[in-house]
Design a protein around this nucleic acid. Sequence first.
DNA 1: GTACTAAACTGATGCAGATCATGGAATGAA
DNA 2: TTCATTCCATGATCTGCATCAGTTTAGTAC
Lengths: 249, 249
Amino acid sequence: MRRRKTPVEIELTEPHLCSMDLRLHILHEVPFFSALGHDQIAEINQQFHEKGFQSGDYLYFSGDPAESLFIIAEGRVKLLRHATSGKDVMLDLLVPGEFFGGLSTASDSSYFETAQAITSVCALTVSREAFRTILTRYPDVGMRVLDLVTGRLEAAHATIHQLSSQSAEQRIAFTLLKLADKLGEAHEVGLLIQTPLSRDELAEMTATTPETTSRVISQFQRDGWINTGREWIALTDPAALLEIAEIPT
Amino acid sequence: MRRRKTPVEIELTEPHLCSMDLRLHILHEVPFFSALGHDQIAEINQQFHEKGFQSGDYLYFSGDPAESLFIIAEGRVKLLRHATSGKDVMLDLLVPGEFFGGLSTASDSSYFETAQAITSVCALTVSREAFRTILTRYPDVGMRVLDLVTGRLEAAHATIHQLSSQSAEQRIAFTLLKLADKLGEAHEVGLLIQTPLSRDELAEMTATTPETTSRVISQFQRDGWINTGREWIALTDPAALLEIAEIPT
DNA sequence: GTACTAAACTGATGCAGATCATGGAATGAA
DNA sequence: TTCATTCCATGATCTGCATCAGTTTAGTAC
């Protein structure tokens, strides 16, 4: 048996449920609950339900009635929209501690995006009503949520800016930096992006085709800026990528 | 003296200040204050300051320290980001009753976008701290603000989706519909978009060049779907535009 | 080790839309 | 009225990236 060449280490194939310890730990980690005490977290924990998914499962589809807010306890989830062409557009990639789903307090609203597990996932869910109750009870939490959503809006605007004014190469460089920042880990092959990351997915994130992504990635590799293989990429020279990405200050 | 051909009727060229009546009226109109009573509005009004701008003025630049939240009382403002190429990317076009600017409660944050008046404008401003105080005092207001920001995030995601997967023609058609929906008025020439709207600005909104925009607009005109002239466009057949925009449900 | 499969790479070709360039028309000022 | 300015239309050309097609390689199962 040959040695695995992929340095990526996420290996959760079974639908995943998480221990009570993990649940409480994650709720503490969530940026908008982090200011609360143990007792309050424990109480809030009562409101949450647990759901397991395996890689590839859909958590919900866009257009479904938005019943719950989700928080990832373990695994990775991508938010996407389907294009008429059949290709998907990835809007966000979420990691443990992040929330998504039904945020709107409007009672008739639907999910705007589709959420799909890209590893096996344990998610905590809370009904819209219960979440709203939490927000009214702890105004500081509401303030934090508002800040986080504002931050996402800013990120979305940055993406619009990029799509409007930058080349495929620049968008790919920037996306790699963003991913490394979010889920990169130091590794002998470089700053490894710890997600099974295919060329197809990278293409969905950068509004290009897998072919173009592959060409650009190959070029970056030839330039000695990255290290890459099947479903993994590691950055060896982030500064060079930053250079060509021309991040607007 | 020749007769003007443009049917657009926004004519505020002097920097504009607004009457106390208008101020109170606008604060009532703002979606997140609409549930409050007169007394509360009057009190909140104390926290706001008034600023006048004339067409072309910048309200703030991206990167400036984010000190205030703005609400438009009169006029129109565009939010934009500058691209390194020199061309701007328009992110939003705001009308009376809408808010923008410093929403984040983080004390060291900066404005993420540049705001420019495209007519003469009267804006109400409130310091970040005062706004935060209002939010903690009236939790319902906070909830409404959260909903509104969530709505903007959804709109931004829709834009990303469009830029990623639709043609210039489709994006322009969709943008025209969006604008007509926001600020269109019935008129003998059709559903008139009541903003001085140049080809350049439309190009900034749709991530195309003015030339491409001009060609597409000309084609729409030949097809009999719109009526257009210098800095104005009126929709005569919105259904046809909706058809080609292929709005994803 | 071999066989199989999905992912990745790479070449050839085509096209949407950017870019470059020019003429014409609406508006405001003198 | 005339002029200057700004906006718009449209033709000609160019190019980045999509598309189409085929080959190679990494990872898995046996």
